[in-house]
Design a protein around this nucleic acid. Sequence first.
DNA 1: AACCGCCATGCAATCGAATGCGGGCCCACC
DNA 2: GGTGGGCCCGCATTCGATTGCATGGCGGTT
Lengths: 346, 346
Amino acid sequence: MIMGRKPSNRPTSFDIAYRAGVSQPTVSRALRGSRSVSAATRERIEAIARELNYSVDKNASSLRSQRSNTIALLFFEEQTLDDSKINPFFLAMLGAITRQCANRGLDLLISFQKLEDDWHVRYQDSHRADGLILLGYGDYTLYRSRLQQLVGQGTDFVRWGSVNDENLGATVGSDNVGAGRMAGEHLLGLGRRRIAFLGQADEHYPEFADRYRGLCEALGAAGIAPDPALLRNAISLEDEGYAAVRALLADGTAFDAVFAASDLIAIGAMRALAEAGLSIPGDVAVMGFDDIPAASMTNPPLTTVMQDLKGAGERLVETLMAQIEDRQRPAETLPARLVIRRSTTG
Amino acid sequence: MIMGRKPSNRPTSFDIAYRAGVSQPTVSRALRGSRSVSAATRERIEAIARELNYSVDKNASSLRSQRSNTIALLFFEEQTLDDSKINPFFLAMLGAITRQCANRGLDLLISFQKLEDDWHVRYQDSHRADGLILLGYGDYTLYRSRLQQLVGQGTDFVRWGSVNDENLGATVGSDNVGAGRMAGEHLLGLGRRRIAFLGQADEHYPEFADRYRGLCEALGAAGIAPDPALLRNAISLEDEGYAAVRALLADGTAFDAVFAASDLIAIGAMRALAEAGLSIPGDVAVMGFDDIPAASMTNPPLTTVMQDLKGAGERLVETLMAQIEDRQRPAETLPARLVIRRSTTG
DNA sequence: AACCGCCATGCAATCGAATGCGGGCCCACC
DNA sequence: GGTGGGCCCGCATTCGATTGCATGGCGGTT
């Protein structure tokens, strides 16, 4: 293959040095702000660099310093989805992460992975990135082995997820238990007593499990025992919410509220309820989780739980950088808050 | 600042060479598939590389070859928006682009920029990326000067937008004129005659202008002269669509259909219509453009125009790579198609 | 048997910046 | 006046892979 290498007159640090009448290392030091360069020299060098439109060669710099100042953001999903079906919640988080990286002068590499691929290697190995941020809803038991490998090979990474005690790398996540409790209290406060939970609340989906646990705490505090018939599996897809509600209706299980583990599930649930001729929230109140953009556009608009995306982006990047610099950071939990709309309050 | 440089026993190509009993350059050649290495030695080297978990150092490789095999994707917006308000259409395109990059073994850097920042330099300069993909809805007249600078400094880039004859870099875009015509024909076919266009159709937003032109062509073919009172400015925000419809209603301008230049505008328009007690599509049919995820969740679901995201991602990457390798590529236009939902057909 | 040519590989230079170490210079202090 | 100590800066090396050119060996041809 012909690699048309273009003639480039890019100035190097040697060119700057020549014009400034100093040595190349001095240029390097001056531009990185080393204090072993006098202010006068530094300013002269900076002026020339600006004039020549010089910018440090990232590859040479990274090679020598063994620091790429780049982090890789890996999304993964259980299977390859249609592009338009990428989890909107993670896309929203992308904005927060890019902003935080920009603030810190970090470059951000991005990649979508299938859970079963071996995305877990190669990134830090090849010095493309100093560390990884992992985002994804997927069966946790499947991807635990990848995490273990990452830990084993000493890769620096942070993941978004349930903050548990497994200690598989650094973790940042919402306070899902607290959020579940809030949701429960909201529905109970509206007089609902038979609250169906839609989401696979087990070791495969620890975040969902946490949300369910919070709901149970709220029920317990109100003196209500959780009814297993009201717990329905669903992963974060619209169709799963639809199917779960259809099943509930087919069973004849009585319920006056639905707490879905994600907005996508909730939206599917609302569709099934509407088809069944049930009014929302008259017959059944519906809540979701995530506050994706579509949540405010449903009919009626969806009450949901908003996670702190901005904080999440900041914490993820901060925790990762701390780990890279060998300053350990404990797992972090971020508070979430209710967004009350008409799907519960009519 | 202490840069905790970790002791790393990463194997280098020298280690592989030593074990294989060959020289280091031979390892390099073997792993890149040079045909000047015998099959036997290549296989031996590959086996050892696999065993040692070797991966090529990206920085060293890029430094020497002057090729990073990385492209940078720059989103820009007119102003910094709330993270959750990032244009959903571009986020969807992100999926297509990442996939295409993965197929070609390219890394993807991503960054969000304000239109007024000087994002236009530094990326190719610093050898972080071989080329740029530019995505954004913004005032074209503002960002033309950036494009000119990019062209001037010889940066390789492709932008998504209106395919015009300005020749400011390579361009890939939907056939907006054709799509606008289709939309017009659809509405005309439903008996609508007074079609309001919501979108700033001028040199600031060439894509919107193209869509409007297509609409006018359809009107012309039906023997209808476009009414300037039915052309209303709006940029791609929900509030702008809302305001535009409010203005139309306040004017007393008669209209039986709305063709919004984007789904966000259409969603705002529907809100204004609903508030005014008008039925959709009974009183007013509404169409959008983009087919963002929320389009199917509005009430009623929104008829819109779906752009070919997968094709777009492929073409953008392909065109960019062609340009990097000095094989010029003409601008490309992709067909779009109607997605008919109940906001026009009831 | 001498010679040509090609295949496979090695040698050494190279990409551009970062960094350990040594040294000149100036000032202060004894 | 000699000496010690900072402050600034230069020299030489280094990071790890790629690449132009040289070379050794082997088979084939006349």
